[in-house]
């Protein structure tokens, strides 16, 4: 299923991580992006983090769903409930 540009563009650009502690640099988001809108770029410490090109991004949110760290934190929260 091809994501529809017009509808999806009303969604916000995904925020892949708010803190550096929330990104392991595994490249899952980079690899899953259907528009190659994500690149892995080094920070000052020399670790690679994903960067979204807003022009290319179609806001399909696939990158948000594929993140293993987000998944691990979700399952911890679920377990705590």
């Amino acid at each position: 299923m091809e994501p529809n540009n017009k509808i999806q563009n009303t969604n916000p650009i995904p925020i892949l991580y708010e803190r550096k502690e929330d990104c392991c640099g595994c490249t899952a988001c980079y690899a899953i992006c259907p528009r190659q809108a994500i690149s892995m770029e080094d920070d000052l410490e020399g670790f690679a983090y994903p960067h979204i090109d807003a022009e290319k991004c179609i806001r399909c949110q696939m990158c948000m769903k594929v993140c293993p760290i987000k998944e691990a934190k979700r399952s911890v929260t679920a377990r705590q409930r």
């Binding site: 392991c24 640099g25 595994c26 760290i69 998944e71």
Partner: peptide, 10 residues
């Protein structure tokens, strides 16, 4: 582990 977990998610 995170590389394997990321790959499985992918």
């Amino acid at each position: 582990s995170c590389q394997v977990a990321g790959f499985r998610c992918f």
